[in-house]
Design a protein around this nucleic acid. Sequence first.
DNA 1: CCATGACGTGGAATCGATTCCCTAAAACAA
DNA 2: TTGTTTTAGGGAATCGATTCCACGTCATGG
Lengths: 328, 328
Amino acid sequence: MVTIKHIAEMAGVSRTTVSRVLNNSGYVSEDARKRVEMVIKETGYVPSEQAKSLRTKKTKVIGVILPTIQTETPSRIVTGVGKELAENGYQIILANTNLDKDKELEYLDVLRLRQVDGIILIATNTEPKLMEKIKGMNIPIVIVGQEADDLMYVTYDDYHAARDLTTFFIEKGHTNIAFIGVDEADHSVGYLRKKGYLDAMKSSELAVESNWVETGIFDIESGYEAMKNILTKTTSIPTATIAVTDRLAIGAISYLKEKGIRIPEQMALAGFGASELAKYLDPPLTTVDYQNEKAGEEAAKQLLAKINAKKYQKQIILDYRLIIRKSV
Amino acid sequence: MVTIKHIAEMAGVSRTTVSRVLNNSGYVSEDARKRVEMVIKETGYVPSEQAKSLRTKKTKVIGVILPTIQTETPSRIVTGVGKELAENGYQIILANTNLDKDKELEYLDVLRLRQVDGIILIATNTEPKLMEKIKGMNIPIVIVGQEADDLMYVTYDDYHAARDLTTFFIEKGHTNIAFIGVDEADHSVGYLRKKGYLDAMKSSELAVESNWVETGIFDIESGYEAMKNILTKTTSIPTATIAVTDRLAIGAISYLKEKGIRIPEQMALAGFGASELAKYLDPPLTTVDYQNEKAGEEAAKQLLAKINAKKYQKQIILDYRLIIRKSV
DNA sequence: CCATGACGTGGAATCGATTCCCTAAAACAA
DNA sequence: TTGTTTTAGGGAATCGATTCCACGTCATGG
């Protein structure tokens, strides 16, 4: 393996000078620079990242912690992060928790000891233990998808998205609107989207029957179950349902079809997330488009700014867009 | 930051001894070991990975090159890889080409200079330039999803899967079977699956009209276009269609629905990949289940075996399973 | 003509580990 | 008692970079 020492010898200069050429810092004569560059080209020499980062304490690696790589939201975020980082010569170390909350904490440590320059956490919760840990780390960390008082984050306006969507249904004349949510520990998806729904109902003075509100987990199956509960347990049957993810909506559709209930005539339906498939469902699903990839890019951008001691925005809330399709 | 030097001083031993405790190598008295361990616990010291890898030339990092993270197949593979690696204390550096072939080559270099211990390439082609480059690198590399003569790989039995699926249609009585493929540069998905289809047709002495065979790219839209072409350009209309991915099949379905063509009565349909959504389409889509996650695990397992100079299997071809659903 | 500063360069320390080699005491064998 | 092994531990080199500091050489201005 060719090292800086070899280059120095071959070019007849000291390692110092080679280093100067590499980082173009300090004084180097045109002559010496030429020779060094020649030799570098000939040998195809590339400086060792390990050695460099041992000295400089910078690895040009960013850790990304995510709950799963198998659903669209995190995948898109990572894609965005990756694009932004690649442009700046940074690499991603991936830490997949596979939905295991404890691993979020664990991976923070693993990444620290890998001396990553920063961490992007695609968060599923804002538990105090996690927040405390983040505050205690002296590595720049950006949270994506959740608000977190005085930490850096990039998230979406979940509350207003849910509120707008609900209002949209109300304006269409629906009064009985059901809701399929998830655990409120997920502040964005669980709590805020539900609050948006409830507040919209309240401000239109519409009552919400307790059985209209179901809680699932993040998979299709639980959307199916939730819709089943809604239709079998409620006294006044809703005419519209909001599901907090497209996958839950897909589960709901699957139940509705099984029972021969027509969408949207008998049950209007909407999801969140603008999954690619939503467009191709029958009927195409109304959904909320968050700019996930943009969120990833933005998170990476602010993180790099912070790392390089430039001006950065600490907290960003991205916009959303309702995509109205035939399911309503 | 606490280093081995501090630990040595605090425990009243040399760095050598601390290192011995850390790696439990060489002779260390019970007494010294206790003291060192105490200090390590007190200080929460963790050895620097950079320093270690500078010396040992091992980083415990594996590079994963993939075409996109936004479709199910690579996501599942990465999940499998991640699980296996995590169990062995390895980390993943992610290199996302975003479907840009040139970046595959580029990232091989980037990863090498990051001194990754090995590379897993989720491949979309087997172009000579790429294969040559891989042979020329002196880092262990496993290819996933493509065969590559004398390199390490884990792939699927694409040929027989396609052949079986086609035969299944034939046995159901179909004689006019269309095919939506992709560019044959993708040897597995493009070439082998098509060959399986053609050979099955031939061995049943069924003719294949040239217009029955369409080529798309990997997105839903091109499935739509392909189905449109098949139905508008052919003289004898097919009664069944095989699409080489579920997404292509979804596009095809979308066209069929638009035209009011009933599935499977007027057109039977099948895809490949066992995407989660396939199950919830209307009608549920017949598809081929490859064990993507297993493939990832297997690739990681063999790679680690090779890295650690243990016995490994150079080439693995995984099994598949037809999932017959109502679309046929 | 000499002080000053810009320019060029190299020596050597440093980052934080591992590891080779050496010394020395203790344990054991002859 | 002497000679070998085993056990224990330290010194110092090393990995491949960066960077501080010192030291020349010129040109310039006072």
